[in-house]
Structures are given as C-alpha cells and as structure tokens.
C-alpha cells in the first residue's frame, strides 16, 4: 500500500463491487466495498497536497484517517463528496468510486453525490434556524413538503443522533445555535441522517467538544456503523483506536505533499504497524 513515488495515473476503471470480500478475522459475513480510491492526487494550483492514495472502505465500517497536521487527511476526505470543488484552484486526479461509479466523472451530479455522501464538519455549524428546520433542511431541498412525513423524519433522525430526548420539547422554538457545542454537533449529524446518506464523512467531529460530548459522539458513531459507512478524520489517536475498524495513516513527504503510509485493521495498526513511520507516530515519537 505504500505509494510514495508519483507515477502516471492509470485509466479509470470501476471496481468490481459484486465480488464478495471476506473480512479478515472475526466475522465471516460477506461485505462489499463501498468506496474505493485509485491513485488519487490532489493539487492546489501547482502544489501537490495529496499524492497517489489508493484505498478501499468496506460498507458498514468505520475508517479512521490519522496523521500529522498538513498530511492531507481532510483534503483527501473532502474529495469523497467533492467539497474540494468549492476551493478555487483545487484539482483532483485519479478515481474515487462510490459503489463502482467514479464520482470524479464530470457528468456526475455533485448534488446527488452529496445526498448519498453526507458530511459533518470540524466546527458544529447548525444553520441559524430552529432545530426542526435544521433537520428538515435537506429533505425540504429535495422537495419533501408533507408535514407529517417531515415530522416523522425529523424525529427518527434526532433519535438516531441521540438528541431527541434533549430537544423534543422545543423543536420549533429553539434555534440550533442555542444548543451546547456537543448538542450542536449531534444536531449536525441528525441533519445529515435526514438526507438519508450511505456514507458519512466526519472531519474531526469532536475536536471542538468537551470530553463528555466527545464520548457521546463516539458512542453514536459505533451505533451508526450498523447502517452507514463512516470515514472519520481525527487527530486523536485514542479516538481512532476506540471507534474505527480500519485505520489509515497519512504523513508528509519531503515536498510537503501528503501520502498514505499504510492502512489496515485498527487493532493491527496500533499494535503491529508494518511501517516504521507509523510506529513512530503512534508511539509519539513524531508529529
């Protein structure tokens, strides 16, 4: 998996999603690959931010991206739902396949993509609207106007995000901004859930929160894993160790371009990493 040398990007091809993949040890259940990246490089103008990353994410699992600041984890995460499109001068090479479809294809509808691949940001960013309107925002934009259906959807989404009990009494009266930081972040998760995604990207979702709120978010992620594929960027290695199934370690090359050092089951990465760089980072000798 170590791929530091830049080499020509091969022709894009779909990954065979029908082939069942057996998870390494524990379960023998068949699972499929949800997302695969192939030789993804991301440039900001002339500068290479991420170089040649290929990895696969299994459905209904949590992948954690760890590594020092500037190693391109967040940038890489943002190419899954093409949020990099919004940055002037950013360009992506290679393929990112969601169930075999390359999302980088210019014909792909980014709107449809972002409905299927939701995102939770580092800083909780609820809209300055009521809690209800925050959660109903996505569905409304897809034309759902039926009051009963919306109410139902808002309720299930808030329940899944473990926020319902705390806010059910003033859904419409209270602004999303009036909640505590941890509640705001769970509201943002509920907001994503309401759009019914398959994949949820989380960009350091707990870095702005207190320890208690952080633990709640982690618990929530473990639960959501049963239905969703989650990719999380985190600076907190304990967090990666606690919640993720698979961990990918990124670092920076000499030219400050981020690259993938290794990826593997979280247990193995934290106990027996193959690469020296990974070991140094995990044991705190680097970064």
């Amino acid at each position: 998996m170590l791929a530091t040398a830049p080499h020509p990007v091969p022709s894009v091809r779909a990954i065979d999603v029908t082939a069942p993949v057996v998870r390494d040890e524990a379960s023998a259940a068949t699972i499929s690959i949800k997302i695969a990246t192939e030789h993804v490089s991301i440039m900001y103008g002339e500068k290479v931010a991420v170089r040649d990353v290929s990895l696969q994410v299994q459905a209904r699992s949590i992948l954690a991206l760890i590594g020092p600041s500037g190693s391109g984890k967040s940038t890489f995460l943002r190419c899954f739902n093409r949020m990099n499109d919004l940055i002037p001068g950013a360009s992506v090479q290679g393929a990112v396949c969601l169930e075999g479809e390359n999302v980088m294809d210019p014909e792909v509808s980014v709107v449809e993509l972002r409905r299927r691949v939701g995102m939770v940001f580092q800083r909780p960013n609820p809209f300055p609207m009521s809690i209800f309107e925050n959660v109903a925002y996505g569905p409304r934009r897809r034309g759902m106007n039926d009051r009963r259906k919306l109410e139902e959807l808002v309720e299930t989404s808030l329940k899944r995000a473990a926020l319902w009990d705390e806010v059910k009494d003033d859904l419409r009266r209270k602004s999303g901004l009036a909640l505590s930081g941890g509640q705001q972040q769970r509201l943002c998760i509920a907001r994503v859930l309401a759009t019914d995604p398959e994949v949820i990207l989380m960009d350091e979702p707990a870095s702005a929160l207190d320890p208690v709120s952080t633990l709640r978010i982690e618990e929530l992620m473990r639960e959501l894993r049963q239905a969703y594929t989650i990719v999380i960027v985190t600076h907190n290695m304990q967090q990666a160790a606690r919640v993720s199934d698979v961990t990918a370690f990124f670092t920076m090359a000499e030219d400050r371009a981020g690259y993938l050092v290794e990826v593997g089951p979280t247990g193995r990465i934290f106990t027996r990493p193959t690469e020296r760089l990974t070991e140094d980072y995990i044991s705190g000798r680097f970064g």
């Binding site: 969601l98 479809e101 999302v103 014909e107 792909v108 509808s109 449809e112 299927r116 969703y228």
Partner: peptide
C-alpha cells in the same frame, strides 16, 4: 437504506 439507488450520473 435502500441498496440500489439512482445512478450518480443521472
């Protein structure tokens, strides 16, 4: 969550 969805390339 439905297993198959509309193609992204709609």
């Amino acid at each position: 969550t439905p297993d198959r969805r509309a193609s992204l390339r709609a």
